[in-house]
């Protein structure tokens, strides 16, 4: 399962990278003569209301969506790690202050917060990544903090302290590797949700401004008016979102299992047995 989904996600990544080569037309190339044509050999996924090739737009859109997803998730993980590690490891006053701040932040509805933030700093790729990343990083810090609190109480951390290791060393070599599983899950889940949230923002016209081919933007905007007449306008980007987000989440699950030291050891034993 993990391998199949990994292959699918990889395929989308390749499409995103090679969009310029693979796309039969330019993403914004308008062919008024073939507006709203259904899937055919000339246009495998049909065209939209301006006569732009859907396949080309999906391929270029993959680049945008994955950039937003991975970028925002990386930023979110970084923010969550910084807040969660310091809050969970140093505890006491630092923990109290940061956690009340996180409480306050999480008490705002996400979408309202995002809409407000985007309308202040304006739409655009970098802005969307920043806003999504920071927002989901702050709420994600709870997951990191919880894992750190559990790890901090473990005997091997006490043993490292007794050995004379400093705080930074304990954080990097003892706490961090042992919270890898939830952090990996955090990253992949945030990738999926960032892609979806970007789609929602673009659907509302607050994400990446047209004519850039974002998957969410393709679902929303003017194409909404043509969805009954030309269902491929909604089905194609919607299906892509579904497949990619599902795939990334499954990959995260299996990545966590693979990185478990128990797994590593049994793999090595199997390899040794073969030799």
């Amino acid at each position: 399962m993990g391998a199949i989904c990994g292959a699918v996600v990889l395929a989308f990544l390749l499409c995103a990278l090679l969009a310029d080569v693979l796309a039969p037309y330019g993403p914004n190339e308008i062919m008024p003569a073939s507006r709203l044509s259904p899937p055919s050999t000339a246009f495998p996924l049909g065209t939209d209301y301006l006569g732009r090739d859907m396949l080309s737009r999906i391929l270029h859109g993959a680049r945008l969506s994955l950039t937003v997803g991975l970028g925002a998730a990386a930023l979110a993980t970084l923010v969550a790690l910084v807040i969660g590690l310091s809050s969970g490891y140093f505890g006491k006053r630092i923990d109290l202050l940061t956690q009340r701040f996180v409480d306050a932040w999480m008490s705002f509805p996400d979408l309202i917060l995002l809409i407000a933030a985007v309308s202040i700093i304006g739409p655009g790729l970098v802005q969307v990544i920043l806003v999504l990343g920071i927002n989901s990083g702050i709420s994600g810090s709870r997951i990191v903090r919880g894992a750190v609190l559990a790890t901090r109480q473990s005997l091997y951390v006490h043993a490292a302290e007794a050995m004379g290791a400093g705080s930074l060393r304990i954080l990097v070599h003892y706490v961090l590797p042992n919270i890898a599983a939830p952090v990996i899950l955090l990253f992949t889940m945030r990738t999926g949700s960032a892609i979806l949230t970007e789609a929602a923002l673009s659907f509302l016209g607050l994400g990446i401004p047209p004519p850039a081919p974002s998957w969410g933007g393709m679902l929303g905007g003017t194409s909404r008016n043509f969805m009954y007449a030309a269902p491929w306008l909604a089905i194609v980007p919607g299906l892509c979102l579904l497949i990619v987000v599902f795939g990334i989440n499954v990959v995260g699950d299996s990545l966590r299992d693979v990185l478990d030291p128990h797994h590593m050891a049994s793999r090595r034993r199997r390899a040794a047995a073969r030799r």
Binding site: S154, Y156, A159, A162, M163, G164, H173, P177, N178
Partner: peptide, 30 residues
């Protein structure tokens, strides 16, 4: 921390006192 070099400790539970993510060589090098 510097003085801890002179005083080391062995804990009761050997199943919990070693970092599960480190190989033995690394644990001894730490």
């Amino acid at each position: 921390r510097r003085l801890r070099r002179g005083m080391q400790m062995i804990f009761q539970d050997p199943f919990a006192s070693l970092n599960p993510r480190m190989r033995i060589g690394r644990i001894l090098e730490e």
